[in-house]
Write a protein that binds this DNA or RNA. Structure first.
Length: 242
DNA sequence: CCAGACGTTGTT
DNA sequence: GTCTGG
DNA sequence: CCAGACGTTGTT
DNA sequence: GTCTGG
């Protein structure tokens, strides 16, 4: 599932947060499209300061990693964290209880397999039905790059079972990113028991997300994907020979 | 996850 | 078909 | 014990 | 750093 998502424009986010933004925006990064494997800075809010939106690298790097090469390898592996096993995974167990975060998004990208063998795929853009910014639930830690002493905040996005919409799009019995609704954001970032955390790591109820098909630009290796068109509605032609 | 490679030799 | 790199 | 992993995702 | 597999 979620290896690609989009973030709101700064002005959209400020409008969403109100004229007197509830959150202080310290470092903001807007993407029409961001690929997890590029480990870009994304806008997140952490339990360390739940009124701030700051930059963090998507792909959690545990603190004991010793060099940038290993850090990149671990970040590649740690884009997503399964909610079902997060308390026992060595990479995540140290952080899930005390270092949770929210990653700000405007949508994410998934594929639908048009046939069982996956020969034909249709990409979708999925977003909040009200078209407002929303938040993925995640966990984070700070990693200090030894050669420079530079501190990077890094995070993983948690995954859960798919809800109905996502199981339709992403075919049966698959996954979806954990989405923390506005009403649970402060709770998610507060001091919680394991049981309370587990209770919040559930699929988003159906009816809150919308989706439409998009062009294959989203998976291009040669074209610039961080452009508005990557999210545009595109109806794939049907019953063509190719 | 998806796109692209999938190989070797006398080596820049 | 299957593996690797991003 | 020590070396090696430490992760996820559609494979049905 | 800590866990797992051999």
């Amino acid at each position: 599932m979620c290896y690609k998502y989009a973030t709101p424009k700064l002005e959209e986010l400020i409008e969403y947060l109100g004229e007197q933004p509830e959150y202080t925006i310290e470092d903001y990064f807007h993407y029409y499209f961001a690929d997890g494997f590029n480990h870009q800075f994304m806008p997140v809010t952490t339990s360390a300061n739940n009124r701030l939106i700051e930059k963090a690298i998507w792909g959690l790097v545990p603190e004991y990693i010793e060099d940038s090469k290993q850090a990149k390898e671990r970040a590649d592996q740690n884009l997503n964290a399964r909610s079902e096993t997060i308390f026992s995974r060595p990479s995540y167990a140290p952080y899930i209880s005390t270092q949770r975060c929210l990653a700000w998004a405007s949508g994410f990208f998934e594929h639908h397999w048009d046939d069982a063998k996956g020969r034909s795929k249709t990409p979708y853009f999925i977003y909040s039905k009200d078209k407002q910014p929303f938040t993925f639930g995640g966990l984070y830690t700070n990693w200090v790059r030894p050669d420079t002493g530079e501190v990077f905040k890094t995070f993983s996005i948690i995954t859960t079972e798919a809800n109905h919409l996502l199981s339709e799009i992403h075919n049966n019995k698959q996954r979806m990113p954990l989405i923390i609704p506005e009403s649970d954001r402060d709770t998610w970032l507060s001091n919680l028991s394991k049981e309370a955390i587990t209770d919040l790591m559930k699929p988003l109820p159906d009816g809150l997300l919308s989706a439409h098909t998009i062009s294959k630009l989203v998976t291009s290796r040669t074209e610039e994907r961080n452009v508005p068109e990557v999210q545009d509605i595109y109806i794939p032609p049907k019953d063509t020979l190719f």
